[in-house]
């Protein structure tokens, strides 16, 4: 199969590993810098103390060359640097980063990336159940609705390997933080549901400091407010029948489109999520 990035021409050395839709919104190779990725900041008024504790724990993303205490610098899939999200230590601890945009026209948007996840290598053990999950949320608003499609790869829960893709279509109520500002911490452990056919073993390798990169793709149609497909390496899942978190449209969020990756820990160690590169494309 010829990807759209290869048709009729010599493969583009950066894009031929992707399968983008006709227009590329952004392509970030983190050897060129942070490229507009930032920490997700919880809403607050008056004092940072009013921030929801779920959001308060989040930490800033960083550029990493994946240096290990035993093997030295691992580097990224291409170039030396990757975007790194690092949770704090502790079971259930989580961090979230994002890039904020608006969509130019309602269309299908498709996220692609090469990623890997690993626990902090504090133990000389396999540690393959230390990372609980990693996932992606889109934050989207059209003229009538705000939707928060979100999927995750549940690696382990309460110390037991799970190895499956999940989605969430229900969460918790909004909390009022004052001054016409509300917050909803929808990244918690509640209401995750298994995606049919979503069991998948993702290569972890044999110790925490050996890293392999994986391909991920997720599509969402802003016209219908429905997912299209999820792909991780050779697993392709039709998500078009799945629901999403959905609310009435909110003030000041017209045409919102945010891409929001997250990672959480299932042990007392930090959980790390790395992106070699991220590409967002659309068919507008």
């Amino acid at each position: 199969m010829i990807s759209t990035s290869q048709a009729g021409q010599r493969p583009d050395i950066n894009l031929s590993r992707f399968d983008p839709l006709p227009r590329i919104m952004f392509y970030d190779d983190f050897s060129q810098g942070m490229s507009g990725w930032t920490e997700l900041l919880g809403n607050y008024t008056g004092s940072l103390r009013t921030m929801h504790p779920g959001y308060k724990q989040f930490t800033p993303p960083m550029l990493s060359n994946l240096t290990q205490w035993d093997g030295g610098t691992h580097g990224a899939l291409t170039g030396s640097y990757a975007l790194k999200l690092a949770s704090r230590p502790g079971r259930g601890s989580q961090t979230v980063s994002l890039k904020r945009m608006t969509f130019p026209r309602a269309c299908t948007m498709q996220l692609e990336c090469f990623f890997t996840y690993k626990p902090e290598a504090t133990q000389l053990e396999l540690s393959d159940s230390d990372v609980r999950s990693w996932g992606v949320v889109f934050d989207v608003q059209d003229s009538k609705h705000r939707v928060l499609p979100q999927v995750r790869y549940l690696n382990a829960l309460d110390g037991k390997l799970q190895n499956k893709w999940q989605y969430k279509e229900q969460s918790v109520d909004f909390d009022n933080v004052g001054d016409r500002t509300v917050t909803i911490y929808h990244y918690g452990e509640e209401n995750w549901k298994d995606i049919p056919g979503g069991h998948q073993l993702i290569c972890y390798n044999e110790i925490p400091t050996k890293v392999n990169w994986h391909y991920f793709r997720l599509g969402f149609d802003i016209r219908t407010l429905r997912y299209t497909e999820l792909q991780c390496n050779d697993l392709v899942l039709d998500l078009s029948g799945l629901g999403t978190l959905k609310f009435d449209a909110m003030p000041n969020l017209q045409n919102l489109f945010n891409v929001i990756p997250f990672v959480d820990s299932d042990s007392d160690r930090r959980a790390f999520l790395y992106f070699d590169s991220i590409l967002l494309s659309g068919d507008w």
Binding site: G33, M34, E39, S47, K56, L63
Partner: peptide, 12 residues
């Protein structure tokens, strides 16, 4: 030159 500011303690 790349530059980046990280908030390493945000109300702690």
């Amino acid at each position: 030159a790349e530059s980046y500011t990280a908030v390493i303690a945000r109300g702690e």
